[in-house]
Design a protein around this nucleic acid. Structure first.
Lengths: 297, 297
DNA sequence: GGTTGCATTTTGTCAACACAAGAGACAGAA
DNA sequence: TTCTGTCTCTTGTGTTGACAAAATGCAACC
């Protein structure tokens, strides 16, 4: 199965090159060294070379014989690239399987063969996905043949617990000694939240709204520097994304959440961690109650 | 590659049958229904049947034509089975790879092919292991070919963070509302710890000592009922097992740890959760300091 | 009716091969 | 030198067929 594009390595690299040019604010005419790029993206020169040829075709770079590629357009003329980089490693099929389980289309037990037939996926890809899912705890390999969904995804209890967990963990992260802000990341998060307040909220897809919310929480926890705290929050969010996929949230409530988020950013950047932690606790508990109402329907 | 035994499904089932007979205290002469067992172990009748034939060979059960298998020995005459059940799903190769990385035998970057050649492992098995490892965060798939170890396993920082994480999480778990003891599990843990105090400590393998320690912590957290807390602790312990594999601990210190553990069990069972949480914090902080000294060498 | 005994179907793993594509080596131009 | 251009070697994935073993269906028996 030849993938449409996003999954081809050189396509991803091409996007990354553009992104890099923008990040480094490179002017038209500057030289793009193959080995430089290869090192930056941790690949060999081969895929970089293909990517550059691609960009030449798009008139972004120009080739000079025996001198390599040079920027034809300055960084300001380049389109920001869609977030393929963040999406990287996430498989669409992952969500499709979860979806089909939640909607009842996929029974409690199933065999790999069944999935291969149903989704037309290949064995290796499935093996990877399934082990990942079982590692995340919502799928289990049976001793003999087949797999079985755990009750995790469907039970309200899990949902409550996920909020409880965040309520315990996240404020603690804020109060960790050595808490150090990554200003660039914080600025990015602030922009994302503010733009939603400014009306973009209604235009964005459910998935994007969720991503931004999760990103906020992951970023403020990440500043604690403790990899286990970060991983814990990430893990919960991945599961939460599946759980909330079917819940249609009241968008006006979301406005309040965004305000909370920005307030919390303010407190953290002002260095008032105790207050930020307290506020975060309240924020999470309010959010939790709101969601429980929705699920109770 | 025909495995020696532990990995064959029917062998595992045979062990599980014995375990079940002991757990249910079945007398000699009792009937063992195939479907019953199959349901209990979530497999079909086929492997159960093979397992029973195996047990017949070992004179544990007796077959009566057209009536199935009957216990020949009462539960008290049966040997407790080695913990193949707990070991289930863990791959020896997993630890071997970690070991080889820590000892420097395996470079920072490597290809799957390299591992196949080096360990004589099969592709599927490796794929599963590698995705698991990358899920656990200490290995990363490169965009092109190959894999790369993260700095997680080697850095002292990770080690500190793992203790910090436990110090935050575990006491909180004890104070969760709805904390409910699984008495059987607690009794088991208590036996494990007490027997080490009674001198068994010197005879046990490093791996078993670690397992018991980890089991203690996971069990008391498990009683909180929150799956995210439990998973968090489990995850840290898996990593910690790798990190501590190379540290030779002072066994006399371990005696103190065992005493602490038993004290904590006492407090919890007495319902004094606040005191238990406080003591647990101190316990973890002491243990952390002790280990840091060792690593500093 | 429910269970065993047996036969049949299905599944998952492994080995082998083909192929696209990434990694690495080397000569030659700047 | 240092980097490009080109070439070869290696890697990873997809596919197929074989085989052991797990799942399943059915007749026979208690």
């Amino acid at each position: 199965m030849t993938d449409s594009g996003a999954k081809q390595l050189h396509n991803r690299i091409a996007s990354q090159i553009v992104e890099r040019v923008r990040a480094q604010r490179l002017q038209a005419g500057e030289h793009l060294g193959e080995q430089d790029l290869a090192d930056a993206f941790r690949v060999s020169r081969s895929p970089v070379r293909v990517a550059l040829k691609l960009l030449e075709h798009m008139a972004v770079v120009q080739r000079r014989p025996n001198q390599g590629f040079f920027l034809k357009q300055g960084w300001e003329q380049l389109q920001p690239q869609p977030v393929t980089a963040g999406e990287q490693g996430e498989d669409e099929l992952y969500y499709r399987i979860a979806e089909d389980h939640l909607s009842g289309a996929l029974g409690l037990r199933f065999t790999e063969r069944e999935l291969i037939r149903r989704y037309g996926a290949t064995r290796v890809r499935l093996t990877r996905l399934l082990t990942q899912m079982s590692d995340e705890g919502w799928l289990e390999r049976l001793p003999g043949h087949g797999w079985e969904f755990q009750a995790v995804l469907t039970s309200v209890k899990t949902y409550e617990q996920s909020y409880r967990f965040r309520q315990l963990i996240e404020p603690l992260a804020l109060e960790e000694p050595g808490y150090a802000i990554d200003q660039a990341a914080f600025d990015q998060v602030r922009r994302e939240q503010q733009s939603m307040l400014d009306g973009e909220l209604l235009r964005l897809s459910k998935a994007e709204v969720f991503r931004r919310g999760a990103n906020f929480h992951e970023t403020i926890v990440a500043a604690s520097g403790n990899i286990f705290l970060i991983e814990g929050v990430r893990r919960v969010n991945r599961l939460r994304r599946l759980l909330e996929y079917h819940v249609n949230r009241d968008r006006s409530r979301l406005v309040n959440e965004c305000r909370d988020h920005i307030d919390i950013l303010d407190m953290i950047e002002a260095g008032d961690m105790v207050e930020a932690a307290r506020f975060l606790r309240r924020h999470l508990s309010r959010a939790s109650e709101a969601k429980m109402d929705l699920i109770a329907d």
